[in-house]
Design a protein around this nucleic acid. Sequence first.
DNA 1: GATAGAATTGTGAACAGTCACATAGGTTAT
DNA 2: ATAACCTATGTGACTGTTCACAATTCTATC
Lengths: 330, 330
Amino acid sequence: MKPKRPTLRDVAREAGVSYQTVSRVINDNAHVAPETRDRVLQVIETLGFRPNRAAQILQTERSHTLEVVMPYFGFNRVLYDMARAANQLGYHFVISAISSEEFPKTLLTARSRLIDGLVLIPMIPFNDNYDELIEMTDGLPFVQIGAKLGANLPSVIYDQARGARLATQHLIDLGHRKIAEISGPLLNYDGCDRHEGWRATLEDNGIEPGPSVEGDFTIDGGYAAMRQLLDSGAEFTAVVIGNDSMAFGAQTALRESGIRVPDDVSVVGFDDLPESAHFVPALTTIRQDFTVLGRLAIEYLISMIENPETPVHQRVLLPKLIKRESTRAV
Amino acid sequence: MKPKRPTLRDVAREAGVSYQTVSRVINDNAHVAPETRDRVLQVIETLGFRPNRAAQILQTERSHTLEVVMPYFGFNRVLYDMARAANQLGYHFVISAISSEEFPKTLLTARSRLIDGLVLIPMIPFNDNYDELIEMTDGLPFVQIGAKLGANLPSVIYDQARGARLATQHLIDLGHRKIAEISGPLLNYDGCDRHEGWRATLEDNGIEPGPSVEGDFTIDGGYAAMRQLLDSGAEFTAVVIGNDSMAFGAQTALRESGIRVPDDVSVVGFDDLPESAHFVPALTTIRQDFTVLGRLAIEYLISMIENPETPVHQRVLLPKLIKRESTRAV
DNA sequence: GATAGAATTGTGAACAGTCACATAGGTTAT
DNA sequence: ATAACCTATGTGACTGTTCACAATTCTATC
């Protein structure tokens, strides 16, 4: 019934060497004579031997497994890109999709769950303090995706405020003076920094910030936020919207009210989703390259795991303005 | 430097019991006196003891880890939903994002990598034969997402042909007689079945199938396919498109050629992405609930793991026509 | 009050590897 | 010729848990 997999010792017996020699072969240790190595490899092949990872992990205390802890959906693309980067660098990649209550427990148990390193998706109010996080992860290396610019946290981020500046300045350059906003959640770093960038840019230009409504990064949230903006009777000729998804929803609300984009109102989003270029009108937006973001995060994390001397730093990427048809001069 | 985590034996010594008793406590074994259990739990708490999973796995040969093997990106949402379902049922969830060449090796090594079960994303030409797959996975339980209807494979699927029938019949009912298609990859089960459903429905209604172009499920692919259709000079008043992403791209191509949707051409997609309802015009499409799909797949897989008697079967979901503004009577 | 039976607890071995160190044999330098 | 060193290989111990079984204690029954 149970054929039982061959072990290192089975291979050793069959090849007429000690188990240690077999261990050396599977670990590419230099001190093995070429002909011995070949013979052992031959036996491994015919017996179909595979080293048992549990036993290896138990002994070495290294699992070559990374885990991303995500308390909500919304990082689909970067998820795949990180998995791919990790796999290519010889690491497994585990997703913990949790509710926010489970966050501390997930971090706390990571070490005994044989995780070598963590990718954290920011979760206010947990992610402000490096020391606190270090304690929660029991010293396990981690990299956070997104954080305040200048935070003393191992993190990979896009300079969100800079992105918001690009977006807002673009509108100002087009002659807009009444510039509203649908922000992301202000408890979220990205949402907050974008909001701040919008506000600061207007202020720098001596323009009174238009009304701002807080959204939740979802399409439906964008729709609701725009409804709210319209119902409030606020006047504006342009809107900066916290991400492209919300921009889609918001434009539905505008259309329903007979307001044309970009004729009556200009719209800028964030992210540059694949759909954004094909939207009607094609969405002007701030592009972030999630593949690069994911890869940098994984590489940074692995360097922390493999070399504890790696200094804590921030990797900051600069977003890019993509001009399309949803913005126009007044 | 290295504080060394407490082990089961440390707890046992501290609590004045044997290590076996501690083991019983952490495994909720019935045969432990309540006061002993409380004392042990107390010590576990103060010592901060966590069982070492590697040791547990080594002994039990069960890791409580599921793995999804995906050779390409495109299942973002179902990924998150599966991870969540798995976590809720006490399983870890690993993503292997691989190139298709690595597919056989990934399956072969799954067992020694301590995986309890696999979720497979169909990969022609590997996924036709149950026996072959069983051999590749070394008897490890697996569930495939997507397969031919009626295939003798543990699988969870939407009845794609049925979906295509709904879409095509809807167009026929609106009076369309020249119905083109942009199919998904015909080497893909979903793509192929949808294509077949489109063809069969037209045939059943005595209508000559319009031209069909093969796409690749991406937005850009949809754009290119529609370009090709238009350049060929084919006449059609409606198109069935293999998924919503391609429909987005295709509509850009139509717009560029001055063809209006739905006035000149009606369009039906597949999937009902969150964006689809907000597209201009709002996309008529065939809805599939990926959350349900993911949950069914994970539950099925776990039932196979925990009860080997689970019969091989297919779980078939029925998609739903969502009528919106991209289709209109001729 | 002896005895069967159940409940609770303990002991030794096993899981499948790796690490640290020991040993055998072959070169090279003095 | 011999010490010194390097390469190739082997041995024993160890990782932290669970399993199978043994031993002890307690309770109930006659």
